[in-house]
């Protein structure tokens, strides 16, 4: 087993979180934030040194909203220190991705925990803006302004499965 997989499984045992292993280097799990529930996928590359963590947002972009949502996600991504949003134009799926290269070393469990937390916090924070565009006819600029004026976001979210 590669050392990233080892660390993931150790972290999940420590925190008593559930997960499914789907293939040798792929993990599937779920977390609830303040605003939604997120499916997570963790992929480890062939050399076992790079972890890509994806959080799937529960709302996706119907075709007629994809332009607006794309602009919103671009605005969200700009100046974002860690990770970025992606949207699949084929089906409107929206996800937040963080990729970390651990350089062949076993990740520190608390570091891994923070990576997962980052994914969850960002997804949960910006999900609201997507809802505002889809259901309240906000423009991308209005949605971003609402979301990013929402106070201190660096506080750790309460991770719940």
């Amino acid at each position: 087993m590669d050392c990233i997989s080892e660390a993931i499984e150790e972290l999940f045992r420590r925190e008593n979180w559930k997960y499914q292993k789907r293939g040798e280097r792929t993990y599937y799990f779920g977390f609830r934030g303040e605003n939604g529930r997120y499916d997570f996928w963790a992929f480890i590359n062939e050399t076992g040194s790079v972890l890509s963590l994806y959080a799937l947002l529960p709302l996706s972009a119907p075709e007629k909203y994809r332009g607006d949502i794309a602009e919103y996600l671009h605005r969200a991504n700009y100046d974002m220190m860690v990770g970025n949003f992606e949207m699949d134009f084929r089906d409107g799926e929206i996800r937040f991705k963080v990729t970390t290269d651990f350089n062949g070393e076993k990740p520190d469990l608390d570091h891994l925990d923070r990576v997962i937390d980052c994914c969850l916090v960002m997804s949960d924070r910006y999900l609201t803006g997507i809802g505002l565009i889809l259901f309240r006819s906000h423009t991308p600029q209005q949605a971003i302004a609402m979301v990013e004026s929402g106070g201190v976001w660096e506080e750790r979210s309460h991770i719940v499965q």
Binding site: P58, L59, S60, P62, E63, D91, G92, E93
Partner: peptide
């Protein structure tokens, strides 16, 4: 399922 309005689990 991916539907027009959203993906549903």
């Amino acid at each position: 399922f991916n539907c027009d309005v959203n993906r549903f689990n």
